[in-house]
């Protein structure tokens, strides 16, 4: 999901191009966006605003799939859908405009502190977290000798407050991993499979492959649902809020998914030479045992990315 290279209408404008040309839209449309964003109130110039628009669009290909060409209409639709005021404010803050900072603090200081408190779980930790983030957003950290503010990375697609919450969460996780050691899970955390006969290594290999094939056929949202619920232990409420559905819907989907996975696993195991009885023994009688019997398998298969990202990040931030 990295930003695509400049192609299909995403080519960079020459340095002498006007702000509208940089954004790839007509001058009248740019003027309309400029007015909507109230960028002038943040002391953001038209050129800077045009650059911010172009950077935001190029970062996510204007919401267009990689195989398609970005049309001017799509480009304009993308710009219109942005949180333009917040984008202009974030860009002005990243550029160090005082008036923008005053507006930012007026609008977000209280909410940011509250969010940090909610994330950190305590008022003191939350204030520390928020204070550290203020410093970082203000650009006190320098990169290659230049002042750098994470606000420059805000694209305007989501709300600025949502972006700030995500940054806070990242920083909190980073700090937690810097200051805490991960404790390995005890053996008692995993229930013993109810299968009467222990599985042979060959059967376990076959089972692992079968689980991999079955889970690989699932849709992305279903995989996210399974991983969040069974691996992370998220509640139905959290999942429902994330997917913007009702808790009952999440519950039904989970039940359906586990049932389907069990059926699919049985078929797959039988298709690869295992008898039905043996396959059922390996799976257990109840589909709900899936998270117990195959917790490790699920973790191995769903957890494709190495869990070292934050560890690596911890040393850099």
């Amino acid at each position: 999901m990295d930003s695509a290279p400049a192609q299909d209408g995403l080519g960079e404008a020459p340095p002498s191009a006007s702000p509208a040309e940089r954004a790839g839209i007509p001058a009248s449309a740019f003027a309309e966006l400029w007015t909507l964003a109230e960028a002038g109130a943040c002391e953001l110039s038209e050129v800077e605003f045009g650059l911010a628009l172009a950077a935001s669009g190029a970062r996510c290909r204007f919401g267009v799939p990689p195989a398609e060409t970005v049309s001017p209409d799509r480009r304009m639709a993308f710009y219109r859908a942005l949180h333009l005021k917040e984008l202009a404010l974030a860009q002005a803050c990243a550029l160090g405009r005082d008036i923008a900072w005053r507006r930012f603090l007026e609008s977000y200081r209280s909410a940011l502190t509250q969010a940090a408190t909610g994330i950190a779980g305590s008022s003191a930790l939350g204030e520390d977290l928020a204070g550290a983030l203020y410093a970082e957003l203000y650009g006190l950290k320098e990169r290659n000798g230049e002042r750098h503010s994470p606000l420059a990375g805000y694209s305007g697609r989501g709300s600025l407050m949502g972006w700030l919450r995500a940054i806070l969460a990242q920083r909190h996780v980073d700090r937690h991993r810097r200051t805490h050691r991960e404790s390995p899970l005890g053996d008692a955390d995993f229930a013993a499979p109810p299968a009467a006969t222990p599985a042979s290594p060959a059967e376990l290999t076959q089972l692992n492959q079968s689980v991999g094939r079955t889970l690989g056929r699932l849709q992305a949202e279903d995989r996210l649902l399974l991983a969040s619920y069974f691996l992370d232990g998220r509640t139905l409420l959290e999942l429902a809020r994330l997917l913007r559905v009702h808790e009952a819907t999440v519950s039904r989907r989970l039940k359906r998914l586990t049932g389907e996975i069990r059926k699919s696993l049985l078929k797959d195991l039988q298709a690869h030479g295992m008898s039905r009885r043996a396959a059922e023994e390996r799976l257990g009688a109840d589909p709900r045992d899936l998270d117990l019997n195959f917790d490790l398998n699920l973790r191995n298969i769903l957890q494709t990315s190495p869990p070292t990202a934050f560890s690596q990040q911890a040393g850099k931030t």
């Binding site: 999901m1 609008s107 977000y108 209280s110 909410a111 509250q114 969010a115 940090a116 909610g118 994330i119 709300s159 407050m161 949502g162 919450r165 995500a166 806070l168 969460a169 990242q170 909190h172 996780v173 992305a220 949202e221 995989r223 996210l224 399974l226 991983a227 969040s228 691996l231 992370d232 998220r234 959290e238 809020r241 994330l242 769903l302 957890q303 494709t304 990315s305 869990p307 990202a309 934050f310």
Partner: peptide, 29 residues
Amino acid sequence: MLHLAGCEACREVLFLAQIAVQNPAEEAV
């Protein structure tokens, strides 16, 4: 979602950020 399904770290950040959404004062922003 494909990435989130396989990345525990990003899921952790995502759900952590969601915790703070419940505050109505932020929702107003």
